Simulated scan of single mutants.
Amino acid sequence: MKYGFGVDIGGTTIKIGLFSIDGKLVDKWEIQTNKIDNGKYILQDIAHVIQNKIALQNLNKNEIIGIGLGVPGPVTKEGVVNGCVNLGWKAQKIEEDFKQMTGLNVKVGNDANVAALGEMWQGAGKGYQDVLMITLGTGVGGGCVLNGKIVSGVHGAGGEIGHMHVKDNEKSACGCGNHGCLEQYVSATGIVTQARKKLLYDERSSSLRKYFSLEAKNIYDEAKEGDSIAIEIVNNVCKILGNSLASICSVIDPEIIVIGGGVSKAGDILTSGIKKYFQKYAFHACANTEIVLAKLENDAGMYGCVKLLMK
């Protein structure tokens, strides 16, 4: 049996999985992301724990097809990471550097892109070759897999769905520096911001007012309980998402759309709302594209990193 390591590098933790190449997760663990000196030691830390795991599992290096890395930033086809703000990295040849460090085959991809690849391989997109994934969390990420391959683009920015422009005259800036990005309205942070604005000028009673520290989950939960303001907020999120996904599908025409990230735990209230508006705005040939919830949750990136090695 051959094995591969999938490494999902986040701003707080690094998730590492050992997989057999038939898609079975053999073992997984986490380490803290060491961002001292602009992330200088991150790759060294990963290399160290993987070498220890190889020894503990009694694996021979010829049994290992390599290490796949998912990083929170744009990645070019050549394996160059074009900067990762959350890690402190500037542009650098991560693939080449880590290959020299470990002596193993290395492939690098954007974290949202590899999550889409993971869902295509062993998750909600299994059995499909053309998958669009959108991840709704603190921010909004996305990944596009066409004909079984990640679409990364020339600058590594393929799938940056969260930074589509969806609204003019937005005064607040997105984290990317632009104004009116999708992320500002449909992410966990964005929906809370929109709710707080609405509660300021809408004088109707609402159960949302009882929360001292309002979270996205509270808004979806109260919408399910029938709170009128919460329902309107969620409806607006679904309208923006449905419209945006319809526009993307007019360009890439995927077989399936997978909704992931922490916000996706809202479940049917989210997917049914998105479907309603997607079908309203989509080009007729794309209107019945399947929209489903992700299955692999926080492990999707690790799965996708291993699949990267199997091209």
Rank of each mutant, 00 (worst) to 15 (best):
L245N: 02
L296P: 06
S205P: 13
N52L: 10
G267F: 10
D268H: 13
G143P: 09
D202A: 02
N110K: 09
F19Q: 03
G261I: 02
Y3Q: 00
I21K: 08
Q100A: 12
L117Q: 04
A216I: 06
S247V: 15
L43I: 01
K167D: 00
N58W: 12
I94M: 11
Q279K: 15
V108E: 02
E170W: 11
N298D: 04
G123C: 03
I269N: 07
Y211I: 07
I65A: 01
I291R: 06
N60G: 11
C238H: 06
G153P: 06
K210Q: 15
G304L: 01
D37C: 03
E95M: 15
D299N: 10
V81F: 11
V106L: 07
D299E: 11
L87G: 00
A116Q: 10
G142W: 03
G261Q: 01
Y185W: 02
S207D: 13
E96D: 14
Y41L: 11
C238R: 04
R204Y: 04
L309A: 05
I31V: 13
V186D: 00
N235W: 05
K280W: 12
G158A: 07
A173Q: 15
V131F: 10
A230D: 00
L136G: 00
G6D: 01
S207F: 14
I219N: 01
S264R: 08
R209G: 07
N113D: 14
Q51Y: 08
G142A: 06
V251N: 14
V81L: 14
H155D: 12
V114W: 05
G262L: 00
G109H: 11
G159I: 06
A112T: 06
H155M: 08
F283N: 10
Y128D: 01
S228A: 10
V251Q: 15
C249R: 11
G39S: 03
V292A: 03
L208S: 04
I50S: 03
T12C: 03
H179D: 02
G23L: 08
G10P: 00
G103L: 10
Q44V: 14
C174H: 04
G88E: 05
C176P: 01
I64R: 01
I231N: 12
V80P: 10
K126L: 03
A266P: 06
Q32F: 14
K61Q: 14
L25F: 05
G141L: 05
C238P: 10
V251I: 15
G11D: 02
D253K: 13
D8W: 08
D111W: 11
K61Y: 13
A266H: 05
I50W: 08
V26T: 07
F278D: 10
I134H: 09
I259T: 09
I256F: 07
E203G: 07
T33E: 00
E215T: 11
H163T: 02
L296Q: 04
G118D: 01
K265Q: 13
P72R: 07
D22I: 12
I67C: 12
G70I: 08
S205K: 14
L309Y: 04
V154Y: 14
M101L: 15
I21D: 09
K90G: 15
V75D: 02
I46Y: 08
A195W: 10
N178L: 12
V192N: 08
A124G: 13
G158F: 09
N147I: 11
